[in-house]
Write a protein that binds this DNA or RNA. Structure first.
Lengths: 213, 213
DNA sequence: TAGATTGTTAATCGATTAACAATC
DNA sequence: TAGATTGTTAATCGATTAACAATC
């Protein structure tokens, strides 16, 4: 039974979990909503609302039971069994992500990495394959999710291969709108657009601060 | 004179530009709002609204003048002079981004890449440096923007160094909320959260489709 | 003209935030 | 108790979408 949650709440739940798993809070049994809010730069009301949505109740004096939060987050966003994922053309950026999951955090497991046009070993603990093995490995390892970061010219062709191999979720770093059937969920990230956004808002910030000189 | 634009509009303007620069539209002089909308999976009204905001007027019969759009986008989101940026710990993922800017698209230039704990050459056309050179290169090259993807344990220390070296905009791929003074603009990207989001909505899609079997 | 597109406003949607009674 | 936090509703905010008169 999966609850229907808002997009933003799903992302924050993932972040609450990592914060709770990694930070010093592990020696505390309870945490207040404003503590979580501060770390994530959000408001305590947002945290309480998110927790309410997944059925976590807090204690007026002690705050929220950390283990309860972790269990409820897992119930809310994890499936019953670990999910296998793979990286395609993701290098350094994927390393800490791979480490995070390899340490048993969350419910995803990076079981394969496909290197694009180089044969350097990047991931210490993830089997690395050539792109030619893509379809075979995905089927063998029962991989449903991948992060895709190949040059645009290959995006269309590889996407077709992915879909035919059974992939159902794609984190898309290519500068292409992938053509996929409606049962495949795609989340896009356009790094060029994000860099230009940073550039724009940096300039805005600069102007705004100068206005008060 | 920079116009105050909504976040989402800024990102889309960047995407319109890339689409117009790269796709086959270059042999057309005009484009309709619904053509741009289709490529970006948005609505034609959104495109017209965005273009209106930056002062582009279209022709009821021919659509929008592509060169006019490109000029107005540049006026709206680019500065007067090219902006130097650098990559820190970004590998393969940065390559096509670097190529995009190296080809003269947009107003950003990748002038340096800092490799984290390996000495492999990844970027064909970008000077690569050791992390120890960070502060020196940033100052010398007058770099204001960077994309940061180092392991979490180093994030705090390197961020301090960046800020002290004059960085004013950071695209943050580390799983850390960076502590920066208020004149520094930070855009966060949490890859673990995005992968868990893909996993969640993939499951939702699956359930939803099964409901209609 | 007939038909298609622009430019713009109002309606809608989704998410965040403010606020506060209830609680211990 | 006094003071702090939870749980929840209503208000607000920002962005998208629907809709349509104006245009040629």
């Amino acid at each position: 039974m999966i609850i229907n949650l808002p997009e933003q709440t799903v992302e924050r739940l993932s972040q609450y979990r990592r914060i709770l798993l990694n930070y010093q809070y592990l020696d505390h049994a309870y945490i207040f909503s404003h503590n979580l809010a501060r770390v994530l730069k959000t408001k305590s009301g947002t945290v309480r609302r998110d927790l309410m949505l997944i059925g976590v109740s807090g204690d007026v004096h002690k705050g929220y039971d950390i283990n309860l939060i972790l269990r409820k987050i897992s119930e809310a966003i994890d499936g019953d069994t670990p999910e296998n994922i793979c990286f395609i053309g993701i290098g350094n950026l994927g390393r800490s992500v791979a480490n995070h999951f390899a340490a048993g955090n969350g419910n995803l497991r990076v079981v394969a990495a496909f290197l694009f046009d180089q044969h350097q070993s990047i991931f210490p603990d993830v089997p690395e394959y050539d792109l030619t093995m893509l379809s075979e490995v995905i089927k063998q390892q029962n991989i449903l999710i991948c992060a895709l970061a190949v040059p645009r010219d290959y995006a269309r062709e590889i996407t077709l291969l992915l879909v035919n191999s059974g992939i159902m979720g794609i984190l898309n770093f290519t500068a292409t709108q992938l053509q996929v059937p409606k049962h495949v969920f795609v989340e896009d990230y356009d790094m060029v657009a994000k860099l230009e956004k940073v550039s724009y808002f940096m300039k805005m910030t600069k102007n705004h601060l100068q206005a008060y000189d």
